[in-house]
Amino acid sequence: MNVFRLCGDMSHVFSIVVLLLRLRVAKNASGISLRTHELFLLVFLTRYTDLFTTYYSLYNSCMKIAYILSTASIVYMIRLSDPICTTYDKAQDTFRHWAFAVGPCAVLATLTHFISGEGSGYSLFVNIQELLWTFSIYLESIAILPQLILLQRYREVENLTGNYIFFMGSYRALYILNWIYRTYYEPGYRHHYVAYFCGVLQTLLYADFFYYYMQSKRRGGRFSLPT
């Protein structure tokens, strides 16, 4: 564990807390994409299957459970909790996440898994676990897309939503620093290029949004993404 990873994890937790508070206090889900958070829930559920098979550390297990529970509760609030669910703007949340996120990621994960030959010689269960892990890496990188597309439709983005995007972006950016750190200071640390590629892609998506967000803030005007 290094300082970049710890800060990255904390940034991730903080972004989730920001969103949970926003939902609980404002009792309002407008401008928030349910689809993005359902994708994140799917990401955590497919990545953390090792919760049942391998113990790494108390920190590791607690964080995994915290991510799953907090994301599940976000999904629950937007979907079912009254009065929040009545403020969810379903008509605007239209990104076709099955066709353009889950499907392609599943295909990509299957291809990488078999081409890399990582799972050969291991049991079917381990292979499925590996496949799901790879899928979750791909899916996480683009899970924010429904949210970004939803925000494009809104004339103004709340500070809180801006903060959420900022902390989510910092989380992945800090993970990149963590990988660089580990490469230098951990002998035998093996590169995982799929995770690197997805990590950079993910960071760029957030950075791009945040760039336009800050520009419009500085001008003090209304915020809208270029279409």
Binding site: T54, S57, N60, K64, E118, E130, W133
Partner: peptide
């Protein structure tokens, strides 16, 4: 295995 290499990351 991939999961062994980045096992301690979230």
């Amino acid at each position: 295995l991939v999961m062994d290499e980045v096992k301690d990351e979230l």
